[in-house]
């Protein structure tokens, strides 16, 4: 039988699943407060903590860059990895799974739909906080920094897909885990301080989260004087490896856990 090619369905799915997110951010503007103003306040609060401690000016820049990437991390966790939990409850998961598309495309669509919000949020944090506190950045390596930023976000989304497959199967347990891990991860990835301060073991562990290395690399580029964790080139290589590894792992685990979910009736909504 003739039907559209898998590639065609893949891309159409990404666009279609991104669409409600995109439209939603225009039709309901409360997110401007919850997604922009509140995180901004959080970042500013952190800056005041450092100021009170008389930390070097550089540290204020750490905090701001941490806030920028935090927007993407939270998007990956709360709007992508955990999303199947909600989708199942609403009955959407059945329709996604039953269609001849892939769950990976659905997830990438969620990610794409959320990028707009994350970008707005991180731009707000970067511009407002930097202006407010007169934080300067070195613009000499802005382009490489942007490149690393893009790579980091890609790696994050691949990790997000791995986590989403776990959520597909473990549902409520995974939810509790995500909630419990939130703070440790902020700590491990060094959102508010250089990773170097964590030491090799903890920092190495934290480096499994693409955020850690990406953040460190960007800081090294635009905030000269950042204590070096590992050489920049290594960090870039590690991020690329993570993109590939998490990308492949996510496909394997999505396939496997979708099959397991069909077996254990975890895709369907219990009717009676």
């Amino acid at each position: 039988m003739n039907h559209p090619s898998a590639i065609r369905i893949f891309f159409k799915t990404i666009v279609a699943r991104a669409y409600p997110r995109f439209v939603g951010s225009h039709r309901n503007l409360t997110w401007l407060v919850t997604e922009t103003l509140l995180p901004l306040i959080g970042t500013i609060a952190m800056i005041y903590v450092y100021r009170a401690l008389h930390a070097p000016a550089r540290y204020l820049g750490f905090v701001v860059l941490g806030g920028v990437l935090l927007a993407f991390w939270q998007n990956v966790i709360w709007s992508m990895a955990t999303q199947f939990f909600w989708d199942r409850g609403g009955g959407n998961l059945e329709l996604f799974a039953m269609a001849p598309t892939s769950l990976a495309a659905i997830l990438l669509g969620m990610a794409l739909g959320g990028v707009y919000m994350s970008l707005t949020r991180s731009a707000a944090v970067l511009l407002v906080a930097s202006t407010l506190f007169g934080i300067g950045y070195s613009t000499a390596s802005l382009l490489p920094a942007l490149g690393i930023f893009v790579l980091t976000v890609c790696a994050l989304y691949c990790l997000g897909m791995v986590l989403a497959s776990l959520f597909l199967f473990y549902q409520r347990e995974a939810w509790q885990l995500a909630d419990a891990l939130q703070e440790p991860i902020y700590f491990l990835s060094g959102f508010y301080f250089p990773v170097r301060s964590l030491g090799a073991v903890v920092g190495g562990l934290g480096s499994l989260i693409p955020l850690t290395l990406g953040l460190d690399a960007i800081r090294q580029l635009v905030l000269p004087g950042t204590p070096q964790f590992v050489p920049l080139a290594w960090e870039v290589v590690a991020i690329v490896v993570q993109i590939v590894a998490y990308g492949v792992l996510s496909q394997v685990s999505l396939r496997y856990l979708e099959l397991q979910s069909r077996q254990d009736a975890r895709l369907i909504l219990r009717s009676t």
């Binding site: 559209p4 369905i9 159409k12 799915t13 279609a16 669409y19 329709l95 269609a99």
Partner: peptide, 13 residues
Amino acid sequence: REQLWMFSQFYGM
């Protein structure tokens, strides 16, 4: 009509 379009895209229509 947007919702209907969205679901059709998962079939590559």
